[in-house]
Design a protein around this nucleic acid. Structure first.
Lengths: 343, 343
DNA sequence: TTGAAAGCGATACCAC
DNA sequence: GTGGTATCGCTTTCAA
C-alpha cells in the first residue's frame, strides 16, 4: 500500500483540449501543439507556461484527432482464425512486436474460420482506416477486398493465400514439409502411411496432402485413399476413422498428421491401441518433447511468419511498390522418437 | 520506437468522402450521411441517387472521423504480459468476443512484464481515447493511471490487482486454489510438500504461497523454507534448486507448482529422478491429461476471467457507476494421477 | 424533407 | 517566434 497524499487534481472534468491548455498558458493553440510535439521555435518562457498548464490539467493529446488530420492512423489490423490457439497467438505476438517498433498499435480479431465474419471484421478495420492489414484468410472469396486495395489499403496474407485476388503472402513450405515428414517415415521402413488432415477447403490441408502424395510417388508407394482422412479437427469424426482404419485390414503402420490438433488427438487414440503406429506431425506444439515417446514434428515458425508478414507490410507502408511478393518459409523436421520406429 | 510519417502511398483513386458522394448524387452531404447511417427522412429518389453514387465510387465511411465527432472510439485496449502464452491468448479471445458483441474493436499489446513498457502501452492507448482498458498489470505502481481514470477512462484489472490505486479487478481465488491443492496432497499422505512459485513481486505468487502456508498450518504441518522456491519461471534456476532439494536431506515427497510453466519444467526434471514425487500444478495446460501420469491441476478459467472482465468493463461504459468491484472466480481441482500418489 | 453551418481535437500553412 | 485560419471527414444543430 502507498501511503502518500495525492496531489490536488481537477476531478472528473472530462478531457482537456489543446485549446484549454492554450487559454490557461496564455498562448496560441499552435504554440501548445509545438511544445507537445517537441517542435522548435518556442521561447523558453512560453514553453514553460505550456508545460505548467499541461501539468496542471493533466492534458494528453488526443491521438485520434491528430491522426485524422495527418491522414493515417498508425494502426494495423490483424484478422486470424482464433486468437486462443497457439499458432495464432504466436503470430499475434510477433506482429505486435514489429508494430510496436514502428510506433503502431495493433487491432486483433478472430474470424472463427467463418468467411462472413472475416469479411465483416476486415471491412470494419478498413472503415477505421487502419494503415494496413494482416489476414490469415478463411476459405471463401476475397474479392470483397478489391475496392479497399484499390483505395490504397496495404494487405498481407499469412499462412494461406487469399482466394480470387493477387496479394502479398507469407506462407510456409507446406509441400516440402509434408514431403520431409513422409520421406522420414519411409526411411524408417514404413510403406503404409496414413495422412490425417483438415478439410480440403483449407489451403494448408491441400498442400500438405500434395506433399504427402509427391513423397509417396517418389518412393514408389501406391496412393491408397483408405489411408487418407480429411475432415474437421474437432469432434469424433477423426478418432472414429482412425480407430476403424487401424482395426481394419492392412492398416497403416505410420501416421502423418496434418496439424498439431490432429497429432494430439491421434496420440490420444493410439496410446490406447495395441499396435502403436509411428507418428510425425506437422506443426510443433508445447510438450511434444515431454510425451512418451517424444513426438517427431515438422516445425514451422509462427513467430517467424508473423515477423516476416509484419515487416513486409511495413515495407509496403513505407512506399515499397514492387510487385506482389510471395514469401515462403522453410520447415524443419525435429525427430523426437515417435517417428523413428519401424513398422 | 520509430515514429516516422510514412510517405504518401500511391493510392488508386484515393478515398472517396461523403462530400464527393454528395456532389455526384447531387444532394447535400447530410443526406448522404442519413442514407449511410440508415436514418429516416430521406425521399426514395435521393436515397437511390446516393446509393448509386456510393456504388460507383466504392465509398466507405471513415469511422475514425465519425467517432471523433461522436466523442468515443468504440474501441477498447488490452495490455497483458505476453500475447503468446496460453493464459493470455485465452483471455484475448474471450475479450475479443465480448467486445465484438458490443460493436467494439480491440487493441492488444504485450508488456513483457516490464512496468515501463506497460505504462507506455497503456498511455498510448489512452491517448487514442480507447473507451476502456483491460490490463493484466505488471508489478510496479499504477498511480500513473490516476489522471486517466479521473478523466473518465474505464479500467478493469485482470488476474492481478494494480498497485497504488483502487480499481475494478477480476481475479481468481488464488488462496483457495492453493489451499485445495495442498490439502489434496496432504489427504494423500504427504507431509513434505514443496512450493515452487514465481518471484514474490508477482501478486499471484504471493497469494498462492499464502494459500500453501494456510493449508500447512491448518493441517498441522510445520512450514519449512527449504521446501520453498520463489524465482523466475524461465532459466535454470528452478530446475537446479529442485534437483538439489530432491537430492538433499529430508526431501519433499510432493510438489505444488505455482503455475503451468513450473509444472512443465518440474515434470521435465522429476521424470529423470529416481524417486518421482507427487505433483499438483496451479493452472491447467493442454496435454496435461496426455502425460504419464496425467497431471493433477487446480484449473482456473482464463476464458471466464476475460469474459467477466470485459462484461464488467462494458457495464461501466454503459454508465454503471457503482463502487469499485472485486470479482473472484472459483478454481477447480482436476485429479489426473500425478497428485493421487502417496509419499 | 433537406442541407448549410458549426463543431469534434488536433495539424498544416502562412501571414505577422 | 507566434498564432490565426483552413482543414481532416464526419455528425449535430437548426433554420428553411
Amino acid at each position: 500500500m502507498v501511503n502518500a497524499t495525492p496531489p490536488e487534481r481537477p476531478r472528473g472534468r472530462g478531457r482537456t483540449t489543446m485549446r484549454d491548455v492554450a487559454a490557461i498558458a496564455g498562448v496560441g493553440i499552435k504554440t501548445v501543439s509545438r511544445v507537445i510535439n517537441g517542435e522548435p521555435n518556442v521561447s523558453a518562457a512560453k514553453q514553460e507556461a505550456v508545460l505548467a498548464a499541461v501539468a496542471q490539467t493533466g492534458f494528453r493529446r488526443n491521438d485520434s484527432a491528430a491522426l485524422l488530420r495527418q491522414g493515417h492512423t498508425s494502426s494495423i489490423g490483424l484478422v486470424l482464425e482464433d486468437a486462443a490457439d497457439p499458432f495464432s497467438s504466436a503470430l499475434t505476438r510477433s506482429i505486435q512486436d514489429v508494430a510496436h517498433q514502428h510506433g503502431t498499435v495493433l487491432f486483433s480479431a478472430s474470424s472463427a474460420e467463418d468467411p462472413v465474419k472475416e469479411r465483416d471484421l476486415v471491412l470494419a478495420l478498413c472503415a477505421r482506416r487502419v494503415d494496413g492489414l494482416i489476414v490469415v484468410p478463411a476459405s471463401g472469396s476475397h474479392t470483397y477486398l478489391l475496392p479497399e486495395i484499390d483505395a490504397g489499403m496495404a494487405c498481407v496474407f499469412v499462412d494461406r493465400p487469399p482466394d480470387g485476388i493477387e496479394a502479398d503472402t507469407v506462407l510456409v513450405d507446406n509441400v516440402g514439409g509434408a514431403r520431409a515428414a513422409v520421406e522420414h517415415l519411409v526411411r524408417h521402413g514404413h510403406r503404409r502411411i496414413a495422412f490425417i488432415g483438415d478439410r480440403l477447403e483449407i489451403f494448408t490441408a491441400r498442400e500438405r496432402l500434395r506433399g504427402y502424395r509427391e513423397a509417396l510417388a517418389e518412393t514408389g508407394i501406391a496412393f491408397d485413399p483408405r489411408l487418407v482422412f480429411n475432415g474437421p479437427a474437432y469432434g469424433e469424426e477423426m478418432p472414429a476413422w482412425l480407430r476403424g482404419m487401424l482395426a481394419g485390414p492392412d492398416p497403416a503402420t505410420a501416421l502423418f498428421c496434418g496439424n498439431s490438433r490432429f497429432s494430439v488427438e491421434a496420440i490420444r487414440e493410439i496410446s490406447r491401441a495395441p499396435q502403436r503406429p509411428a507418428l510425425v506431425g506437422f506443426d510443433d506444439f508445447e510438450l511434444a518433447d515431454l510425451l512418451t515417446p517424444g513426438v517427431t514434428v515438422v516445425s514451422q515458425d509462427p513467430f517467424g511468419l508473423g515477423r516476416a508478414a509484419a515487416q513486409l507490410l511495413f515495407r509496403r507502408l513505407n512506399g515499397d511498390a514492387t510487385p506482389v511478393q510471395h514469401i515462403h518459409l522453410r520447415t524443419k523436421l525435429i525427430p523426437r522418437g515417435s517417428g523413428e520406429v519401424g513398422p
